[in-house]
Design a binder for these strands. Structure first.
Length: 585
RNA sequence: GCGCUCGUAGCUCAGUAGGAUAGAGCGCGGGAUUCCUAAUCCCGAGGUCGCAGGUUCGAAUCCUGCCGGGCGCACCA
């Protein structure tokens, strides 16, 4: 519950009264009523569109109705004034005590503030990272990882029962290529000169230790064996090694999944065959010939009949192949099995985080889920655009240990986990992101990580100052709850409380929209308000948080500072960023 | 050619459930500054929200068409 929905309930109650009173017709629909923060603070504390939404269906004049509603709203507790403005908004001014109560709520709840029951404990599955287990994660994965992880935390904060899932694509041809690459490194470890790594295999050095370990454990027993003999073993061994590598990388970013789902296991358990039987039974499979793609024709295009899924029946542009030319299932086929499995494990709400280059894939998977769950399963795919690494505006020339790309590990080593996590959320997921390795270490206002962390540190530091000024005062959070908040009379202070009180609503809105980046922007704005108040006190000493000869006022203001600190910490917690108490080097 | 996605200040981007006079940072112009914790602060200029229609009491936001950028486009994952 947040102040807005709480007040909406009040408005609805008064509308019911007006209906009972005959001022509004029976069956008046209140669902479109909203209670908002007015854009311009001088308009009041809260604002509702009730009259504008209800007037027309009721056949009433908007402003007349607004006056009627406004009059009723005056009877609501804490409402000091209700004025009709503009095209029919009702602006409410609330007693300061209302806001002091919000402040106390923050201190009482601590960083749990903002926790919501919006999700009603409904199960949500967030699948993210899901990189092929063929090598270390790179910078692009870092973005999807953070977006997925924070979205999961956000949903948990909003009251959903969240499962974080990683789908291991360990069944395709790229895994054989991995095994062959590892086998080469194995022969190399046994002293053989392997020359260059052939085209199509993975050249990265990260496979050297895998080859070495194979040699250490297996000796030369596989060296002269046929591929068919060593492949299964080496495949399993190297996939396990790659997953360890990936898990390590994710650990460095503070990411841990609840569930790892293996494509290979699904396939081996016959899940794909079963899903195809289901589709067959529903008459959704047929053998047909697809039109060649328009535009550039692939070199090896050949027209041939294929087994197709009727994706077009569920909103896709065309039907989609489920079998390859060699008779094996396509990746899409196992993806259908995977999502069906996920649904059956109890997740009607599924969120997948993918790279934007997979955008063309969304419709067919949604179509598949639709077909397989009778429309019950809902998939939302978050597509993440590219990350461009820069150094002072120039393309970064970071050392590339992997040989071909900058790894997630390189990035975390260079700037730290917290910076990576925060910066990855400073853009909407579907907008390209510039990550400037130099700027993110700057201590200035245009570095959002620093700016937000600094606000938190400054709160902490103000606490120290207050303790020095009043060594005997009770400045614990519990103690501050007994401070005389009515001493907070400055408009800037009250404005700050309003921003803080918007946090629970922010959590709910961001969770509903599946947009974790909103957290970063909210925290930046909050930090800016706090810094602004601080700066203002340089010119107006009466605004300072610590007032030497007024302990009670200082305690009131410390309650506000503690609340700012708490909400920032709460936000950073959701983002998986550690709040710092000081920034001194 | 089709699909997805984006198009907001000179630049990089927000815009909270369709709400009031569209915001921030950088840059630019002007001013303040031995300051409770420094990493500055304040003020100002700057906009046809890509274009054109439509829905609505009300559109940057929803719908349609066009223009422009990015991504993808049988079987690879």
């Amino acid at each position: 519950m947040n102040v807005f929905s709480a007040f909406k309930a009040n408005v609805e109650k008064e509308i019911e009264f007006l209906v009972a009173n005959g001022d509004l017709p029976n069956g008046t629909d209140t669902s479109r009523i909203s209670v908002e923060l007015p854009r311009d603070p001088s308009h009041g504390d809260l604002s509702t569109n009730a009259a504008m939404v209800l007037a027309k269906p009721a056949g009433l004049e908007t402003r007349d109705l607004a006056e009627t509603i406004a009059e009723r709203l005056l009877t609501v507790e804490s409402v000091e004034s209700a004025e009709v403005a503009g095209p029919g908004f009702i602006n409410l001014r609330l007693a300061n005590n209302f806001w002091f109560q919000q402040l106390d709520n923050i201190l009482k709840a601590g960083t749990a503030y903002g926790q919501s029951d919006l999700g009603q404990n409904r199960a949500v599955n967030v699948e993210y990272v899901s990189a092929n287990p063929t090598g270390p994660l790179h910078v692009g994965h870092a973005r999807g990882s953070v977006v997925g992880d924070v979205l999961a935390s956000l949903l948990a904060k909003a009251g959903f029962a969240v499962t974080r899932e990683y789908y291991i694509n360990d069944a395709g041809g790229q895994i054989d290529a991995l095994a062959r690459s590892a086998f080469l490194r194995y022969r190399e470890a046994l002293g053989e000169n392997i020359g260059g790594i052939p085209e199509g295999l993975y050249p990265g050095d990260y496979l050297k230790p895998v080859g070495q370990e194979l040699a250490d454990r297996e000796g030369d027993k596989w060296r002269d064996a046929e591929e068919a003999q060593w492949l299964p073993f080496v495949r399993e061994f190297s996939v396990a090694a790659m997953l360890d590598l990936i898990r390590n990388d994710l650990d460095a970013l503070g990411i841990r999944h609840d569930f790892f789902s293996s494509e290979r296991e699904l396939v081996e358990a016959g899940a794909v065959d079963k899903v195809m039987e289901t589709l067959q039974a529903d008459d959704l499979l047929y053998v047909g010939t697809l039109e060649p793609p328009k535009g550039k024709l692939p070199d090896d295009w050949e027209e041939r009949p294929q087994m197709l899924f009727k994706a077009s029946k569920y909103g896709d542009d065309t039907d989609r192949p489920v079998k390859k030319s060699d008779g094996s299932w396509t990746y899409f086929a196992s993806d259908l099995a995977y999502h069906q499995d996920k649904y059956r494990r109890g997740f009607p709400i599924m969120i997948d985080v993918w790279g934007a280059d997979h955008g063309g894939y969304v419709k067919r998977v949604s179509a598949g889920i639709n077909a397989l769950t009778g429309g019950e399963g809902k998939l939302d795919v978050k597509l993440c655009q590219m990350v461009r690494l820069l150094e002072n505006g120039e393309p970064a020339k970071m050392s590339k240990r992997s040989g071909t790309f900058v790894t997630l590990r390189d990035l975390v080593d260079a700037v730290g986990k917290d910076v990576v996590r925060f910066i990855m959320l400073t853009r909407k997921n579907d907008a390209p992101l510039d990550f400037d390795l130099v700027k993110v270490r700057e201590q200035s206002r245009d570095n959002p990580v620093f700016y937000v962390q600094y606000a938190h540190a400054r709160c902490h530091s103000v606490g120290n100052m207050a303790r020095e000024a009043f060594p005997d005062a009770d400045l614990t959070t519990e103690g501050l709850r007994r401070a005389d908040l009515t001493r907070l009379t400055e408009s800037d202070e009250l404005a700050l409380i309003r921003s803080l009180a918007a946090w629970p609503r922010m959590v709910e809105a961001a969770a509903e929209a599946h947009e974790p980046h909103r957290l970063a922007f909210y925290l930046y704005d909050l930090a800016a308000s706090f810094h602004a108040l601080w700066s203002k006190a340089r010119e107006e000493p009466g605004l300072r948080f610590v007032i030497a000869d007024d302990e009670e006022l200082t305690r009131g203001r410390m309650a506000l500072v503690r609340a700012v600190q708490t909400v920032i910490a709460s936000g950073l917690e959701v983002m998986g960023v550690t709040p710092v108490d000081e920034l001194r080097e």
